[in-house]
Design a protein around this nucleic acid. Sequence first.
DNA 1: CACTATTGTGAAGGACGCTTTACATGACAA
DNA 2: TTGTCATGTAAAGCGTCCTTCACAATAGTG
Lengths: 66, 66
Amino acid sequence: MDNHLRALRAARGWSQQHLAERLEVSRQSVNAIETGRYDPSLPLAFRIAELFELAIEDVFVSPSRG
Amino acid sequence: MDNHLRALRAARGWSQQHLAERLEVSRQSVNAIETGRYDPSLPLAFRIAELFELAIEDVFVSPSRG
DNA sequence: CACTATTGTGAAGGACGCTTTACATGACAA
DNA sequence: TTGTCATGTAAAGCGTCCTTCACAATAGTG
C-alpha cells in the first residue's frame, strides 16, 4: 500500500525522528512505513492522518485505486 | 478502536459469512473485528470502507475522537 | 425431535507491526 | 579530519492479524 508520508513530513521540514516522537512510535517504524517495508496498523494510520489533518485516504493509497 | 461494522452489515441483511466472502477473509476475522477482539489491518480496513462506499473514518472510530 | 443457519469462541500456526540495540552511509559544519 | 545529523537497515523478541479446524449455543423450520 502506497503512502505520502515522506512528502507530508518533508513539507513540514520534519525529520523522521521528530515525526516518530509526535506519533509516539520509533524512528524505525516511521522509516519502515515511508520506505514501504510494511503498512501501519489502523490505529497508527489514524494518528498519522490526524496529525496531518487529512483523511486516511489522503495519506494512504489503496492498491485497488492506483 | 470502535467500529460500525455490525450495524453496516445488518443494514444490508448480510451474514458474517457473506461479508467475509465479499472481503476475502475468514468468517472468524469478521467476527473478531465486530466483537472488538482486534482491529483490521490497514489494507483490510480499506476494503471494508470501499465495500460499504464509506470513508474509513465513517466505519472505524478513533479512540481520540470518542 | 432432528436439521439448518448464525454467531461466539478456543487453539495452533504463519505473517506482519513495532520495539530496542546496533551498525553503516552521506551531507554538512567546525 | 573530526563531529553531528539524518537516513537506511539488520537482528531478536513480543504482541497482533489472520488462517484453519473445531466445538458450543441459540433460534427457527420440518
